[in-house]
Amino acid sequence: MSFKSYFTRYWQLYALVVLPLAYFLIFRYGPMYGIQIAFKDFNFFQGILGSQWIGFDAFREVFGMRDFYLALRNTLMLNFLDLLVSFPAPLILAILLYEMKIVWFKRLSQTVLYIPHFISWVIIGGIVYQVFGTQSGMINNLITSIGFEAIPFLTSKNEWLVTYLLVGVWQSAGWGTIIYLAALTGINKELFEAASIDGAGRLKRIWHITLPGLKSTIVILLIINLGNMISIGFDRPYVIGNLAVREYSDVLSTFVYRVGLQSGQYTMATVVGLFQAVVGMIFVLGANYTSKKLTDESIL
């Protein structure tokens, strides 16, 4: 096939790709130009080009800050615990939903479980405060009214950690089931019938059919999650966190917000951003490599 006829036949496909390509060039690759801010003493009025080069000075300053390590540790800690607690939750929920036979109840629970995902973190923060507050939170009112000591769910660091994790599960687990439920529809129903004829109970069927059917989905999600280990959303720790538990709740995103945006030190914010990007990439590649070795599943 000559190039001309190839092109007249398929040009629409290329035209379709142009927009996403432009998107990535402009919004993903274009801003990389700004990475150089990390190596410059950024001056608002001179712009990026006019600012002085300072080499790795800003890196030295950031890596010398105790708060940076605290934020880094907290980011990894919260993400890791989240992985332990929040990662299996949608999987378990999806299997539970999948096993349900009453359709209306299944649909209803699915919807009820999704809804928290659509509530903004700011609002969840307000709810959490009302429910878990020590002085006048609903739960503590109940606890004190039956004669026990109030539990500082939000103001003592370990209790806070549990609150943070469980609120995360509440918010995201329902939504997370969608991918698993989609993957589950791909499993051949005959497998289940055959297994039950052979005498496999419900648990055996889940173990030998459902879970293996979800394996690749699980692995892919795990890789994506591991790649995000070093980055953390801003809203959740910022909204749920507070001064009393700063030791645990200050993460890289809130650190960047405080040091970079609020104090106008863009250079330091960029340093942290670049650091996150590099470490994040190492995590993704590492997880991908490991998974390829162990299970033959990978995304690259």
Partner: peptide, 12 residues
């Protein structure tokens, strides 16, 4: 108030 440290916007 036990929760004074959470009340940055004085709402409570």
């Amino acid at each position: 108030s036990k929760d004074f440290g959470l009340d940055e916007d004085k709402k409570k």
